[in-house]
Design a protein around this nucleic acid. Structure first.
Lengths: 374, 374
DNA sequence: ATGAAAGCGCTAACAT
DNA sequence: ATGTTAGCGCTTTCAT
């Protein structure tokens, strides 16, 4: 931790130069003042062409590399945005992150990505770390429920660090958000099923609750406290069913352990019930996998015995048998839009009230939906 | 860039405090010297309990948050490792990154992840940015071919920044590496096919080459210049075939455009050839998808008409029909091991010569392999 | 156009 | 145990 350790390291690993070369070194070698060398190396102010040359040569000869930390200390700006994402292992978020990086890069910003594994604690940590690193702005796909107070993010806002929510809104905070219109696309997906004649459409998965709510209202209320995306999808499901004249039965909604295995058990139960579900709306990739596993367990054929619509289209959805009808989300665009908005905020343009921008999902129809058995 | 802009931003976005609170502010509020405040806030040195209390209260009251940049400037250490990864959208690398972050976090290091989308130019950029941010070490899954000179990474090493290669070795550089034993697991996969009676095992995909090499030697040489992983898998394929007494025919190796569509065309051609392939060894996820697409196009059944072994086991490999026999790689462990090694290097323990550590893949047998048709 | 000097927020010698 | 002072590498007045 001491300076001594640091230089031990420098000399120890490989016959490396025992000390980094700084503007001071370059200035001395070029025979100019530090300020002059700094001006050409930093690309600001104005310096006689001849001197520029000399400084550049000296810098190249010494192998000078700028220290961005020092620059940031002096300017108060890092040209870096932080990204806090709940699950980088999910291709959805991976795509979002790439979109953010694309857009940020184009605007001259670096990105630092931190994964929280859906843990609220790690999210707080991540935000603290990023703020400590003096990022200029923050894009966050938060793991906190819609009802929880995101104090760590409020701290960012209060310090004047612009925050943009991506995919998951932050109703408790007055910040910009870029999301998918989950209610509409979910409703469209379920409408596709009711149009084919389905009345009993199971939903996997919904909010994680300790025990199954009896009434639809209780369920909707509970989901309002869950992740905003999952609540919106649930409401879309309910609205589409209602619209088709069917009662949205809370018993059709999975509220238990949200894992592939949990879905498998839930769907199995739904298919063996007295008034069995004839279709499943799977709102996450893992829910699709669990549903397919359940169907195979029971020897049910898709779509003859069971119709399925799932979230997050992916290349493998075309090689299953049958190919799956899926909701496609504009992931990359989601990230790009969020980063663009953030850069606007950082650079002081686009001031004004926080705004939520909703992007549209798309239903990709393949072969996993048919009319229910008579 | 100017200080003026920065404070405009601070005041503009929300009624935020126009200036950050520093140790100096806290010290003044607590009525102690800066050093004293710094000691308790930074958690070093020793300070009378009573004063500690007072400083902490003042800090809390003012909402003090440490500036890690300034700390790093003073100490010369960032407690941050950089991760450069070729494709964060690939679940394989997503898993590796999580492993790295786990392990780093446990050792008290933050991680900064940069994605390069398999572009050598962006990789250079990424490394420069990370070095500028004064990271303490670097984990890299490089996009550069085994034959290319990774000057950007050499620069890191020469500056005394420890580098650990993950998944993809850097033969041109004397650095630690943590990889999968691609040769062995590929050979095991192909052996599994020859054991079932296959002689004509197509490989999708191999090295990207402008035109198909005529001889096996030319092919192997060419692949030596490609990504180290793909070369090793190719050699594993060749060795397993040879071992079973079959000539590894270079015509069975895909060398063209490495996309799902490219694989689909390649496999289609292989299956319609005079002496058709009876099995496909797909060395990447997208190669598996292309292979399945080709089989479906031709109305071939797996495994009756075509056997398939693929790389990168994944939950969806169990829900295809049939479930797929796949190579599973210990992705998380790969990342954890790499980060652990890096931390050792950073902290000066585990000095000595660079070492490559190879982790073993595992063949997960399911239902996509059978004896070839007579 | 160039140079001298101050300062960003923190840590770390060096007094006391 | 506390305070004083210098300094990390850079940018940015302010002189000249």
């Amino acid at each position: 931790m001491s300076r001594g350790d640091a230089s031990d390291r420098l000399t120890g690993v490989s016959g490396a130069s025992p000390t980094r070369v700084t503007v001071t070194d370059v200035a001395r070698a070029a025979g100019v003042a530090r300020a002059t060398a700094a001006r050409v190396l930093g690309g600001y102010g104005s310096v006689h062409a001849g001197l520029q040359e000399r400084v550049r040569e000296a810098a190249a000869a010494l192998g000078y590399q700028p220290n961005t930390l020092a620059r940031s200390m002096a300017t108060g700006v890092t040209h870096t945005i932080g990204v806090v994402v709940a699950d980088i292992g999910n291709p959805f978020f991976a795509g979002v992150v790439r979109g953010i990086a694309d857009s940020a890069r184009a605007a001259g910003y670096d990105t630092i990505v931190v994964n929280t594994d859906e843990s609220a604690v790690r999210e707080q940590d991540a935000v603290r770390v990023l703020l400590g690193k003096q990022i200029d702005g923050l894009v966050v796909a938060s793991a906190v429920g819609a009802a929880d107070d995101p104090a760590h993010l409020r701290a960012a806002v209060e310090r004047g660090v612009p925050v943009v929510a991506v995919d998951r809104e932050l109703p408790a905070l007055d910040v910009d958000a870029v999301v998918i219109d989950n209610h509409d696309i979910a409703a469209a997906a379920v409408r596709h099923l009711t149009a084919a004649g389905h009345r009993r459409v199971a939903l996997a998965w919904g909010p994680a609750l300790p025990h199954r709510p009896r009434s639809l209202r209780t369920l909707l209320d509970a989901s309002g406290r869950d992740l905003p995306t999952s609540g919106a999808r649930l409401r879309g499901w309910a609205d589409a069913l209602t619209e088709a004249g069917h009662e949205p039965d809370p018993a059709l909604v999975m509220t238990g352990s949200q894992t592939i295995e949990g879905v498998r058990r839930f769907v199995t139960r739904q298919l063996q019930a007295d008034d069995p579900a004839t279709a499943v709306f799977a709102t996450e990739t893992d829910a699709v996998l669990g549903t397919l596993a359940a169907a195979r367990d029971l020897g049910l054929r898709i779509p003859e015995d069971l119709s399925v619509v799932g979230f997050d289209d992916s290349p493998w959805a075309t090689v299953t048998v049958p190919a799956l009808t899926m909701v496609e989300q504009p992931v990359r665009q989601l990230g790009q839009t969020a980063a663009a908005r953030l850069v606007q905020r950082i650079e002081g343009r686009g001031a004004g009230a926080a705004r939520t921008r909703a992007l549209r999902g798309r239903l990709v129809e393949r072969d996993s939906v048919a009319a229910p058995r008579a």
